[in-house]
C-alpha cells in the first residue's frame, strides 16, 4: 500500500501575527516555521504507525511550496517518511494547491491520502475534500481513528455532538485530528537517515486560480477588560445580561 501525507508549512503557534507590503503578506521576519501541527501529529504519525505494522507500506510526503520549506520536509522524512515530493508553487489558492497534490497522487497511485484537519494559518479545512473530488475518491473528515484491513478502511470520525464509525473501501482521502496518533520527536537515527532520503522537486502543474488573498487586517483591539470586584460577582451577572446581552 502506498500512502501520501500532505504537509503544509505554518508559523509556529506562538508566532507574532503581523503583515507587510501594504498588509498583503505575512511578516515572516524572525518567525519559526513548523509543519502544520495537524499534518504532523496526526496524519504523518498515523501513517508511520501503519508502516511500522506493515513493512510493505510505502510512505511518501508531499508539500506544495518554495525551497524555504525544505527544513520542514526533512523533518517529516526524519520522523519516518520514505520519500518526499515538493511541488514548486507559491500559489495560495486552495484549489491550485489541491490540483498539485491531485496530479502527483494520480501519477503515484496512492491508495490512502492523509491531511490534517486544517492548517493553523489559513484555517480553510478544505484541502482533503478538494483533492478527493479532483481524484473522484471517498473523503472522510475529522478522523480520530483509522484501521486498515485489506482494501477496507474503518474510520472513527467526529460528527456534531458525537462520533460516527464508517467503513469505506480504498482509495480514500482522510483529514486527521486529535485521537489518531500521539505526536513524536524525530530521533538521531531518523535525522541522519533523512539526509539521504529522496526529496524530489517537481514544477508546478498549471491551474488557473479562482481566488486570491487580497488584504490582511488585524482584528480591532479589545476595549480592555472590565474588572469587577471579587466581592460583587452579582454585578458581573447584571452586566452580562444588560450590557453584553449575553445571558
Amino acid at each position: 500500500m502506498k500512502i501520501l501525507v500532505c504537509i503544509s508549512r505554518t508559523p509556529d503557534t506562538t508566532a507574532k501575527i503581523a503583515f507587510t507590503d501594504n498588509n498583503t503578506k505575512f511578516a515572516s521576519d524572525g518567525v519559526q516555521w513548523i509543519i502544520n501541527p495537524y499534518d504532523e501529529w496526526y496524519a504523518l504519525v498515523r501513517a508511520i504507525e501503519l508502516k511500522e505494522k506493515d513493512a510493505s507500506v510505502v510512505l511518501h510526503v508531499i508539500h506544495v511550496g518554495g525551497a524555504e520549506s525544505e527544513a520542514i520536509i526533512r523533518k517529516a522524512l526524519a520522523l519516518g517518511g520514505d520519500e518526499a515530493i515538493r511541488v514548486n508553487s507559491e500559489d495560495q489558492d486552495p484549489q491550485v494547491v489541491a490540483h498539485q497534490i491531485a496530479q502527483v497522487a494520480k501519477e503515484g497511485g496512492y491508495s490512502l491520502i492523509l491531511t490534517g484537519k486544517e492548517t493553523i494559518d489559513h484555517n480553510g479545512s478544505s484541502m482533503g475534500a478538494l483533492v478527493a473530488e479532483m481524484l473522484d475518491m471517498n473523503y472522510v473528515a475529522l478522523a480520530t481513528r483509522l484501521e486498515i484491513e485489506g482494501t477496507l478502511a474503518t474510520v472513527h470520525r467526529e460528527i456534531e455532538g458525537g462520533e460516527e464509525i464508517v467503513s469505506t473501501p480504498l482509495p480514500l482521502v482522510l483529514s486527521c485530528q486529535k485521537g489518531m496518533a500521539e505526536a513524536r520527536i524525530p530521533n538521531m537515527r531518523g535525522i541522519m537517515a533523512a539526509r539521504t532520503r529522496p526529496l524530489k522537486v517537481v514544477d508546478a502543474y498549471p491551474f488557473a486560480s479562482t481566488t486570491s488573498n487580497e488584504q490582511f487586517t488585524l482584528p480591532p483591539p479589545k476595549a480592555g477588560v472590565k474588572l469587577i470586584p471579587a466581592d460583587n460577582p452579582e454585578l458581573l451577572v447584571k452586566l452580562l445580561r444588560e450590557e453584553a446581552k449575553a445571558l
Binding site: P11, F19, N123, T210, S212, N213, E214, F216, T217
Partner: peptide, 17 residues
C-alpha cells in the same frame, strides 16, 4: 472577509470566478 491565523487576523478574499 474571513478569519485566518486562528482568529488572530482577518483577510479579504477576492473571488474571480
Amino acid at each position: 472577509q474571513k478569519n485566518v491565523f486562528s482568529g488572530k487576523a482577518l483577510t479579504e478574499i477576492l473571488v474571480k470566478s
